[in-house]
């Protein structure tokens, strides 16, 4: 008898008009940045065979900020990015995108769809495709199987690609196979691929490695121009480059934050001098 009651109660619950069925609820919710913070990383721990890659790491990134992460090799910069983008599972801690998206529960494509783009340390572009195709694949569109099968480029998307080609300076090479590009050009293409996808948050791992001074300068310009509209996190070893773009710098050391502040503050920080810059001075 009570089973029947339960059933009717459940049925009523199902038929409530003021609620949407959970499975019909759109998964894609806007990122809630009402507190001006877009990324919350709290208490992150991760160890590989006893080596603590991340050690109780806390990091908050404001919406529209350009943040530089620096730190010696093994400080956990790339690992942090791996955790944020869903490539690596962490042992404990939380990572929230805005206030409403728990990134640790999501797979890489889902995280990408939320608007987090990533550039790898080693440039990875689709070498068998042309520059144009590379950008086309990166467009912010429905990336399901059927929509992709039937997709046609809209004029708006085409404009967007042209625009990005202009920005990354590969207009001439648009029909070249990406595999034939130089190292620097590949770096640019990868940044371009991030741009066409119109992400909220860009994670950029060593963008100027292998670039000439001139290219580096242009990259710096590009990244600073991106900030504001997008949030950008840059990992870089080139101190000159970091100085030229950074407003806030976070120093990682042995898997946790050592110091945070402007470049000058950080450079004068005693701890930092000791463990990182000290070696160079």
């Amino acid at each position: 008898m009570s089973a029947l009651e339960n059933l009717t109660a459940e049925g009523k619950e199902l038929l409530r008009r003021d609620q949407v069925w959970p499975f019909l609820m759109p998964k894609q919710q806007a990122v809630d940045v009402s507190h001006q913070v877009i990324l919350y990383v709290e208490g992150l721990n991760l160890s590989f065979d006893g080596f603590k890659a991340l050690n109780d790491l806390n990091l908050y990134i404001n919406d529209g900020e350009l943040r530089c992460l620096i730190g010696a090799n093994g400080a956990g910069k790339t690992t942090l990015m791996d955790v944020i983008t869903g490539k690596t599972q962490c042992d404990s801690g939380t990572v929230y995108f805005g206030q409403n998206h728990n990134l640790l529960e999501r797979s890489e494509p889902e995280i990408a769809e939320l608007g987090i783009g990533r550039k790898f340390q080693k440039p990875t572009v689709f070498e068998a495709h042309t520059v144009f195709d590379n950008l086309e694949l990166s467009l912010k569109t429905n990336k399901g199987v059927m929509p992709t099968l039937l997709a046609r480029l809209t004029p708006t998307q085409l404009d967007r690609i042209d625009q990005v080609l202009e920005i990354i300076g590969l207009k001439e090479q648009r029909f070249m196979l990406a595999g034939a590009l130089s190292h620097g050009q590949k770096q640019w293409l990868e940044i371009g691929m991030l741009l066409v996808s119109e992400p909220r948050l860009l994670l950029i791992d060593e963008p100027v490695a292998g670039m000439t001074a001139q290219e580096t300068e242009r990259t710096a310009e590009l990244l600073t121009s991106l900030a504001g509209e997008h949030t950008v996190i840059v990992v870089e070893h080139d101190m000159e480059f970091v100085r030229s773009i950074a407003r806030t710098v976070t120093v990682l050391h042995q898997g946790s934050v050592l110091a945070e502040g402007t470049m000058d503050q950080v450079q004068n920080n005693k701890d930092v001098i000791e463990v990182y810059l000290g070696e160079e001075a």
Partner: peptide, 13 residues
């Protein structure tokens, strides 16, 4: 085929 991880980070399942 050429870069599955990249494709995944672009949002393709």
């Amino acid at each position: 085929r050429d870069g599955e991880a990249r494709a995944r980070f672009l949002g393709y399942r």
